[in-house]
């Protein structure tokens, strides 16, 4: 709090403004400052309460549950047994592997396609708004609704995808996209690319529009080709945004649940069982809440790691702007 604002704050706290001003300076140092701090906590209290009630308590509860062995309504404290179990089970490591593949491929294509679309949209001369809204549609649709639509599209016998692909002779008519282990992961990845790209596109489009036009003009005068302008003007200017948005997307994608839960439920033969789906299945199919909580805590740890990276990238970007 700066010196200049203190009298005003104290004046508001006390009805007699003039009386405050004539009191000795020690008012600002001693009880006044303490009172100010107390007022600060009053203002913080509602948000603090909500945070504690909605985030901290459930989190603590989840951690507590992860140390228990639950059977029906009974639960016994078993220490780190759940963690020992998951780290030695192949199911967890398989699931983690699928999560990593799913997240890495999805984020890569979100960024690639998102950047491509953003570049196109920036240059689009006609029906710009229409294209923007059109490309945003997958993001506006609720993921589970989108997933249901995709299940229909990919339906082996009557689905539009098989119909169209067999029409041009690419596949035979009964390709079971979600029923074949080797195809299922690829299918949900494609659907997640469809879902996740628009958000990245929107972020990058905003970034592209923030690049000063005259940098491109200066590059054109310097003799840079379109590729060189992309390489030496667009990319360096987008660098921090690319890092920040890919980290953000990573955090979002690694915990994404809806699409896979609706489309495959983790199957066939666990081929698409990413960590969030494994947690769900462990908790609600096997009724093993303790183990599910333990996997949840591990996933939280992974996400926290990326969050730290994200915050650092943000701070770096901000420092660069100063």
């Amino acid at each position: 709090m700066s010196v200049a604002t203190r009298p005003a704050t104290a004046g508001q706290a006390d009805d007699v403004g003039i009386g405050v001003a004539s009191r000795s300076r020690s008012v600002w140092r001693g009880p006044g400052l303490r009172r100010e701090r107390r007022h600060g906590y009053y203002f913080l209290a509602p948000a603090l309460l909500l945070t504690v009630a909605l985030i901290a308590l459930p989190l603590a509860r989840a951690f507590w549950t992860s140390l228990q062995r639950t059977r029906g309504l009974r639960s016994d404290f078993t220490g780190l047994d759940n963690y020992l179990y998951i780290f030695t089970s192949t199911q967890f490591w398989d699931s983690l592997r699928i999560s990593v593949i799913f997240t890495a491929v999805c984020v890569f294509f979100h960024m690639l396609v998102g950047l491509g679309l953003a570049l196109l949209l920036k240059r689009a001369v006609f029906a710009r708004t229409l294209f923007r809204v059109g490309f945003l549609a997958p993001w506006i649709v609720a993921p589970s609704i989108g997933a249901i639509i995709w299940v229909w599209l990919l339906e082996p016998q009557f689905g539009v995808v098989n119909y169209m692909l067999s029409g041009i002779g690419l596949v035979d008519r009964y390709q079971a996209w979600l029923g074949t282990p080797s195809l299922a992961l690829a299918s949900v990845i494609i659907v997640d690319i469809w879902r996740g790209t628009p958000f990245v596109m929107l972020l990058l489009l905003a970034g592209l529009q923030g690049i000063p036009k005259d940098q491109y003009e200066a590059a054109a005068m310097d003799g840079a080709t379109a590729w060189q302008q992309f390489r030496f003007v667009t990319l360096p200017n987008l660098r921090y945004l690319l890092i920040v948005s890919s980290t953000l997307d990573l955090i979002y994608t690694i915990r994404h649940f809806d699409i896979i839960a609706v489309m495959t439920g983790g199957g066939p033969i666990d081929a698409t069982e990413v960590l969030p789906v494994l947690i769900y299945n462990t908790a609600f199919t096997q009724n093993n809440f303790g183990r599910a909580s333990a996997i949840g805590i591990v996933l939280l740890g992974i996400i926290l790691l990326f969050s730290i990276f994200y915050l650092r990238a943000m701070r770096l970007g901000k420092a660069r702007e100063d």
């Binding site: 000063p212 005259d214 940098q215 003009e217 200066a218 590059a219 005068m221 030496f232 003007v233 360096p236 200017n237 660098r239």
Partner: peptide, 12 residues
């Protein structure tokens, strides 16, 4: 060669 109002230097 042109000198731009905003200088248009490459920031990186």
């Amino acid at each position: 060669a042109m000198v731009f109002q905003s200088y248009a230097l490459y920031p990186h």
